[in-house]
Design a protein around this nucleic acid. Sequence first.
DNA 1: CAAATTTTTGACCGATTGGACAAACGTTAG
DNA 2: CTAACGTTTGTCCAATCGGTCAAAAATTTG
Lengths: 214, 214
Amino acid sequence: MDTKAPRPRTRIQTEKRELILEAALEVFSAHGFRGSTIDQIADAAGMSKPNLLYYFRRKEEIHETLMQRLLDTWLAPLKELDDIGDPLTELRSYIRRKLEMARDFPRESRLFANEILQGAPRIKPMLEGELKSLVDEKAEVIKGWMRAGKIAKTDPWHLIFSIWATTQHYADFDVQVRAVLGADRGSDGRFEDAARFLEQLFLDGLRPRPDRQG
Amino acid sequence: MDTKAPRPRTRIQTEKRELILEAALEVFSAHGFRGSTIDQIADAAGMSKPNLLYYFRRKEEIHETLMQRLLDTWLAPLKELDDIGDPLTELRSYIRRKLEMARDFPRESRLFANEILQGAPRIKPMLEGELKSLVDEKAEVIKGWMRAGKIAKTDPWHLIFSIWATTQHYADFDVQVRAVLGADRGSDGRFEDAARFLEQLFLDGLRPRPDRQG
DNA sequence: CAAATTTTTGACCGATTGGACAAACGTTAG
DNA sequence: CTAACGTTTGTCCAATCGGTCAAAAATTTG
């Protein structure tokens, strides 16, 4: 005999769950897990607390669902880092893609940062398993490029870290970036400036070199 | 007539306040402000909650005191960035100093990261005032180096951001770094590897160049 | 020593929190 | 229409939280 068949999901259930997750992303990313209350999320989703708890039985369940979705989209750019094509171009577009994600999904970035900052209590196994495997695999690809003389020889793991750090910084430390750049420069051109800077940094560094064009 | 003269501090007061701040740093940096309870801090400090509240009347008072101290030590390395000496050497030692701080004061780094992540509710004025001034000033110094052809021309503000991001990453995302590097490489040599990598990144970038020595 | 002052504690309080629950309401299929 | 099922709400609860308070204990001062 089979155990309880999991009921199919209603139209309303699908919609409302989506609404809740969107609201929860907003709230969790701004205040962290413990800093957020079910009431806040329910408010943001335009429903009552008991109603919200009808769709997600516990606060943790919302957070878990959110994290699972997040991780897929979050690692997608790295998965796309491929051995085909010019190495420098590949890296450059990886950096650009990560920077675009920081611009377009800052809440997701902050949700992730919050989790890691607190010691990753809920996703440590994933970090040590899935994430480590993926990074190790891509590190091998990068090592290949180095052996082939296509890019400078250096530590591929720390290279990946530095790309994560510099790009996500613009989402996670957004308030600080805005404050330092000021109202004028802190707005629209910000990400284009960052993209230009990071490209130059990762390609050529700071050591002055003779102008490559007249 | 003068208003209440603020009583001088007792020996016990000085000691116990220090004990509490140390405990609070541990707890706040691990769980964030809202995620931490006075009981946790009192426990970590080896005293009862009412006893702790005898030295700091409110939870926020502990956090404020902690933040004030933090900011001084946190900005010290940037303040030391001086116009004397070789620019590349100056930048290299700034990076090294920041990396050492991430290694030696990871809790302070995480406390700061927590505050910024949540939108810097308690220190935004400082970011827009003191911090912005300091960064603007140092950006001018760096611009001078660029005009003099001592380092490559690029955006000095984003350069500073990238140094902050890459170095603090090793404190704030420590769990992730450890998980990805694994138990073996995750331990001692980690910071030396990072230092070597960052030096190479910031000086020469990734574009392959002919070996500078036989 | 004794008086004054500082430090520590146990008991307590009101507010907030995550969550339970049954009853009411809405929707839909036969 | 009506029975069955899905949805929503008001009310309630126990636990936890930040913080108070008076009184006990320890320390300092004369």
